[in-house]
Design a protein around this nucleic acid. Structure first.
Length: 322
DNA sequence: GGGGTAAATACTTGCCT
DNA sequence: AGGCAAGTATTTACCCC
C-alpha cells in the first residue's frame, strides 16, 4: 500500500478561486434577515440571527448545470447515467470517400466538392460529439464519486470545471477518463477546504492510487491550480461531526492545533493524523468518552499515530500555556 | 480500554556523481 | 540527472496493565 505524505511546500501556489458564500434566496422567517448560502458547509443560514434554514443542500434534482454562460443556450446536459453514454455504440455511419455513387459511377466534380464539404462537417460534428461523450462520462463519474464521499455540490462543480479545462487544453490523451476525473475531484475538494484522504478517493474510483496521484499532480501542474497545503484544521469539522463530540471539544481541538502550528510541530506530519489526535486530546480534556479506536477508524489513522501525536500536542500545549 | 514496543514500509531529504 | 543512504512518520502486530 502506498501512502501520501504531507509536504508543506510541494504544491503551494498563491492564487485562489471558488467563492464560499453567496446570497441565497428569500428572507429569514425569524427576523426577516438576508439568507446566506454557505456553499462550503452546504448550509443556508440567516445573516442576522444565524438561524440555519437548510442543511446538507446536496444532490437535489438532476444535474442541469451549465459551467459557462454561452452553454446555457445549448442546453448541454451532463451527469447522465452511463447507459446513455455510448448512444451509437461505435456503429455510426461515415460518408464514403470513393466519390462514387451507389452504382460505382464517379460523381461529377461539382458533387465531389459537395461531398468533401459534407465529410468535413460530419467529422467536425463527430469530434464534438466524442468530446461531449467524454465529458458526459467524466461528469457521471465525478457525480458518483462525490456522492459516495459525501462531497457537496460546489465541489463537484469545481471538479467538472477542472475536468473540462483539462479536456480543452488537450491533457487527456494518454490518460484515463476515470483517473483524471478522480484527480479533478480530489483537487476540487482540496480547493474547497474539505479534503478527504487520497485513499478514500481511490477506494471509490476504478483506477489505482498511482494513476490518481499522477493525474492529480499533472492537473495541478498543467492547470496551475491554487491548492494550499493541507491544513489539519480542515479535518476537524468532519471528524467532530462523525464522532459527535461537543462544540466545546471541537473548539479545544482547534486550539490545540493552533498552538501546535505556532510551535511548528505540525510539519512533516500527516494532517489527518494531527487532526485526529487533536480531537482525541480535546475529548479527554473535556471529559468526553471517546476511544482511540473510534477516532482511528473515522480518521483512518492508526491508534499508534494518534497516541504519539496527542502526547505531543498536550506537551506543547502545556509548555506554551504554562 | 489505554499504553508500549519492534519490525516493516513509505516517503523525504541530502549527498554524491 | 539520477542513485544511494540516512532519517522520519506511519502502520502492523504483538505485548502488558
Amino acid at each position: 500500500m502506498t501512502q501520501t505524505r504531507y509536504n508543506p511546500d510541494a504544491d503551494r501556489i498563491t492564487e485562489t478561486d471558488a467563492t464560499q458564500k453567496s446570497p441565497g434566496e428569500g428572507s429569514c422567517p425569524e427576523c426577516n434577515g438576508q439568507v446566506i448560502q454557505d456553499e462550503r458547509r452546504g448550509e443556508a443560514t440567516c445573516e442576522d440571527c444565524g438561524l440555519v434554514l437548510d442543511e446538507d443542500a446536496i444532490d437535489h434534482g438532476p444535474e442541469w448545470r451549465s459551467f459557462y454562460d454561452d452553454e446555457r443556450d445549448e442546453k448541454s446536459r451532463v451527469g447522465a447515467p452511463t447507459t446513455e453514454l455510448l448512444h451509437d455504440n461505435g456503429l455510426s455511419t461515415n460518408i464514403g470517400w470513393q466519390d462514387r455513387d451507389a452504382h460505382g459511377v464517379r460523381l461529377s466534380s461539382e458533387k465531389q466538392a459537395k461531398m468533401k464539404r459534407l465529410r468535413t462537417w460530419d467529422e467536425r460534428f463527430r469530434a464534438k460529439d466524442a468530446q461531449e461523450r467524454n465529458l458526459k462520462q467524466a461528469f457521471g463519474e465525478i457525480h458518483r464519486m462525490a456522492s459516495a464521499l459525501d462531497l457537496a455540490e460546489p465541489v463537484r462543480e469545481t471538479a467538472g470545471i477542472l475536468y473540462r479545462r483539462a479536456v480543452e487544453e488537450g491533457l487527456l490523451p494518454g490518460r484515463s477518463i476515470e483517473g483524471v476525473a478522480t484527480g479533478a475531484l480530489y483537487a476540487a475538494a482540496r480547493q474547497h477546504g474539505v479534503p478527504r484522504k487520497m485513499s478514500e478517493f481511490v477506494s471509490v474510483s476504478r483506477v489505482s492510487d498511482k494513476r490518481v496521484q499522477r493525474a492529480y499532480r499533472y492537473l495541478s501542474r498543467e492547470l496551475g491550480l491554487a491548492i494550499e497545503p493541507e491544513d489539519p484544521m480542515e479535518y476537524v469539522p468532519q471528524f467532530a461531526a462523525s464522532l459527535e463530540i461537543s462544540e466545546e471539544a471541537e473548539r479545544v481541538a482547534t486550539e490545540l492545533l493552533d498552538v501546535a502550528k505556532s510551535n511548528n510541530v505540525h510539519s512533516g506530519k500527516v494532517p489527518a493524523g494531527l487532526a485526529a489526535a487533536a480531537i482525541y486530546a480535546a475529548a479527554t480534556l473535556t471529559n468526553e468518552k471517546l476511544t482511540q479506536d473510534a477516532v482511528s477508524s473515522v480518521a483512518d489513522v492508526s491508534r499508534v499515530t494518534i497516541r504519539d501525536r496527542y502526547q505531543e500536542l498536550l506537551d506543547v500545549y502545556a509548555g506554551h500555556e504554562g
